[in-house]
Design a protein around this nucleic acid. Structure first.
Length: 496
DNA sequence: AAAAAAC
């Protein structure tokens, strides 16, 4: 409770802060107003004064808390006094650098910065991989004060000498934990070594792991810690339900949930790229407009998918964890976990796509017998048990192949449910609009509970079947020189 | 185990 400012505007509910209290320039406030924001979020209320004061920040905030504005607005403010209207590129050196782990996130942060700075003379641009370098190089050569980037492409530009980082006064590391997870540490170190030592550094991370603390102690100076929602907790306005389903029923379950709950727009998370593509195809066949977004799709496909989803042209965006963090899609009513993530933290990030900015949302997760470990990990992380209920999948998902763990659970009794899966293709197709919408299976007890209680153990016949049917995995050549990557890990190079 | 990110 650091409320030295708002004493005379306080109400019964306490201070009702406004953006006016921060002393931001009129041109910035105008842009904020035009964006429709009137009241700062908690992270904004805390971070903006600290950033304006020039201090380093170690911020823990869930996405959807208004984090981007919490650093963008004060950075724009601090750059403003020396903003230059000259056309000369030399008058527009990069003075603020913002790094993000994924291309989509970079693009989104850049859009925010663009919005908030539109009435100022400040220029900004974004660079990330997967797209032509030339337009980026042109923009950099024309000069920008604010640069948003993913690390790899930024280093590429550094090498091409299309950008100079020697005058950066402010650095933002957004989703820093994610960047470390993704092996960006060596790249980050290279970039940090190019920056002036005299600078302001803002580090945002979902968690303060030992690795993050080490990064902070190496590169931040006397940072102010700002924590809004306890990390690893989940928003209370997100209703979380776990549905027990057989692995092979998952596609049908997704389609059924979308239909039954009349979900207009939903992100469905899968653990694998192949699984995401397959599920998107299956949903399409079931008449749900779906598109997959993952790292094996081209950048233009990724951007098109996201744009179409934002425009409301797509009902189901089937995604890998490329979309788990940071993406801000307005008023998403629900997310579905087709697979439970291997990493419990990713669960928190995934469900953070719904229930944003105070709206309520549903996080619906499918859990098969072989995912109990992940479920337990998640409950441990969020420190509470999740509501688990059986889901009878009445929709016949056609030729359900959309699973990363094929047929591992065939042994579980499904005799009384197989009838749903034996209809002919046409029959299933003709009833798919209505199937699952009126028979409510909720009350009926299924023997499905049973397999959650027993440790998973494939039957000998299932094992045999798998050996026979599963193709030996093809090992692809390593995509990057691992030794080079390992060289930089864990040991920050001494720079001073 | 899987995903992401520079060419």
């Amino acid at each position: 409770m650091s409320d030295s400012v708002a004493t005379n505007t306080s109400t019964a509910l306490g201070a009702a802060p406004t953006f006016d209290q921060f002393g931001l320039a009129a041109d910035i406030l105008k842009a904020v107003r035009e964006s429709g924001y009137t009241t700062p979020t908690p992270i904004q209320a805390q971070a903006i004064p600290v950033v304006l004061a020039g201090r380093d920040v170690m911020g823990a905030a869930q996405t959807g808390t208004g984090k981007t504005a919490s650093f963008s607005l004060p950075i724009i403010q601090r750059l403003l006094p020396s903003a230059n209207t000259s056309a000369s590129p030399a008058r527009h050196p990069v003075r603020a650098l913002m790094l993000t782990p994924t291309r989509e996130l970079a693009d989104q942060v850049a859009a925010n910065v663009q919005t908030y700075s539109k009435h100022t003379p400040l220029r900004s641009t974004v660079v990330f991989g997967g797209v032509d370098m030339n337009p980026q190089s042109d923009a950099l050569r024309r000069g920008v004060e604010i640069l948003i980037a993913t690390p790899g492409r930024l280093l590429d530009h550094v090498q091409q000498k299309t950008v100079n980082l020697g005058q950066v006064q402010m650095l933002v590391l957004d989703e820093a934990d994610r960047m470390l997870d993704m092996g960006f540490l060596p790249d980050l170190q290279r970039i940090l070594n190019l920056l002036p030592k005299e600078r302001q550094t803002l580090l945002f991370s979902a968690t303060f792991s030992p690795e993050i603390k080490k990064l902070a102690s190496t590169y931040l100076r006397n940072p102010q810690t700002i924590e809004v929602a306890r990390s690893n907790s989940t928003a209370t306005n997100v209703r979380q339900i776990v549905f027990e389903v057989h692995e092979s029923d998952k596609s049908g379950a997704v389609a059924q949930l979308i239909r039954e709950r009349e979900l207009k727009q939903v992100i469905v998370f899968c653990n694998s790229k192949i699984g995401a593509s397959r599920l998107a195809r299956v949903l399409e066949k079931d008449g749900i407009v779906a598109t997959a977004i993952h790292g094996d799709r081209s950048q233009s496909e990724r951007m098109q998918a996201l744009d179409a989803f934002k425009r409301g042209e797509i009902e189901a965006l089937v995604a890998t964890d490329v979309a788990a963090r940071g993406l801000d899609i307005a008023e998403l009513p629900a997310v579905i976990n087709f697979d439970l993530p291997f990493n419990a933290e990713d669960y928190v990030h995934r469900i953070g796509r719904t229930g944003r900015a105070g709206a309520s949302g549903d996080a619906l997760s499918l859990c098969s017998a072989n995912e109990r470990k992940q479920l337990a990990d998640i409950e441990k992380l969020i420190k509470r048990p999740l509501e688990v209920e059986p889901l009878e999948v009445t929709m016949r998902a056609r030729r359900d192949g959309a699973t990363s763990a094929p047929r591992r659970d065939e042994r579980f009794g499904r005799s009384e449910r197989t009838e749903h899966r034996h209809g002919s293709r046409d029959e299933a197709g003709s009833r798919r609009r209505t199937a699952g919408t009126h028979d409510r299976p909720r009350g009926r007890q299924q023997p499905i509970d049973e397999f959650f209680l027993k440790p998973y153990e494939p039957s000998p016949s299932a094992m045999k079947r798998q050996e026979e049917t599963v193709e030996p995995e093809r090992k692809s050549a390593p995509k990057q020189p691992l030794a080079a990557l390992l060289g930089g890990l864990g040991m920050p190079r001494k720079s001073s």
